[in-house]
Design a protein around this nucleic acid. Structure first.
Lengths: 204, 204
DNA sequence: TTTTTACATTGACATAGATCAAGTGAAAGC
DNA sequence: GCTTTCACTTGATCTATGTCAATGTAAAAA
């Protein structure tokens, strides 16, 4: 369905910016390969990682009908995207309610996910946060046909820490603890969920 | 535009439920008068207040195209809503792209707001959190033609605390401190922002 | 009016997680 | 191949905020 408006975009290198919070909004992106993070920052420079995006996921939805993007998106590894110029999406949407409907679905799902994430940020302990995060990654990969047990953490420890509202050191310690308790096995960027049930139980 | 599908619903009493997380999704709501909060809960019973809703604002957007609601909505005071049966919204949307467009706008704005709120939950101190919250309420009221300086806190201290990821006692202490420093004046549920600039400066 | 109950404030103390500091390992640049 | 740099880990200490406890206050019930 989207084939008509997709403009294949070039690839992105690690740390390369897809868009910045001050850029004029024009294009929605769908990750084709690799991964991205989005961030927003406070006036004093502090930054919050608001999300990670993997193949098949939309980036930029929160900027729909806004003059400019509402966050900054950066590639975590060598990645590529499909670019959907929003004018075309909108024009096509006029005659294809299905397309708008698709967008609504994506938006409401991301919104629901963010509400759930508020619960994590507001109420969970460091262990619950990390357990929840790992399980959420696992489910997303499984949903797209990849292994739910073993995957690559393409984001840095400090990105994870920031996203979960913790310090890097805390993430390190909890990873170590989880490993000592046989919940996970870590080998560099690769993580194996050795006991998903126990991780599940830790989510709170 | 929406007149055709609005079904005026009866009013709601304080603490009365608009919908529960397990209810089948069928209806979008727009607050007509009063105010509501939405919450989600973790398996262990902990709860997070995910948002407050005032006249003109949509409740339930995160459940669009989902089988059931994704949160629980409760009235904070005597309130009333417009009910928009979503089937009708959708049917009408097929012939009125403008309507779908409206929904997209609302959704993306709420999404953008939630991302900003993540920054608050993840990175701000208790004082920054409360200052940011008060200013955000102020702006929302101003936007709808009410006073930006003086308004009623219809939600309890513990709702505020929960929403901001803090303990009630902390909220109490920060309110007291803000009052001692001449930033605000509190009289029961009514709050007056006595020095908006200083509050602004505290937001981080 | 009096009593009850829920909400709010204040103080004393405890702790989860931050910060500071040091060290390790591995990738990138020269 | 060496060295610089960056990401990660681990330990020691500090602190913002939570928890516990007591008291105050105002609305609802009786």
């Amino acid at each position: 369905m989207l084939d008509k408006i997709v403009k294949r975009s070039q690839g992105y290198q690690p740390k390369q910016t897809l868009f910045t919070i001050s850029d004029k909004f024009s294009t929605l992106y769908v990750v084709r390969s690799g991964s991205f993070k989005t961030t927003i920052s406070a006036s004093n420079g502090r930054e919050q990682v608001t999300g990670f995006y993997f193949p098949g996921e939309f980036i930029g939805l929160e900027a729909l009908h806004m003059p400019s993007y509402q966050s900054t998106a950066v590639a975590l590894e060598a990645s590529s995207v499909c670019a959907l110029p929003y004018k075309k999406v909108q024009a096509l949407g006029e005659s294809m309610p299905r397309l708008q409907s698709q967008l609504l679905t994506r938006l409401s799902k991301e919104l629901a996910g963010d509400k759930t994430f508020m619960l994590l940020l507001g109420k969970k302990t460091s262990e619950e946060k990390l357990a929840t995060y790992l399980l959420s990654l696992s489910k997303r990969f499984e949903h797209r046909g990849f292994s739910a047990k073993e995957f690559s953490l393409t984001m840095s420890r400090s990105d994870i820490a920031n996203h979960l509202g913790l310090a890097v050191e805390t993430i390190s310690r909890v990873f170590t603890k989880f490993q000592e308790n046989g919940l996970i096995v870590i080998d560099g960027k690769t993580i194996t969920l050795a006991n998903i049930n126990k991780i599940q139980a830790l989510c709170g």
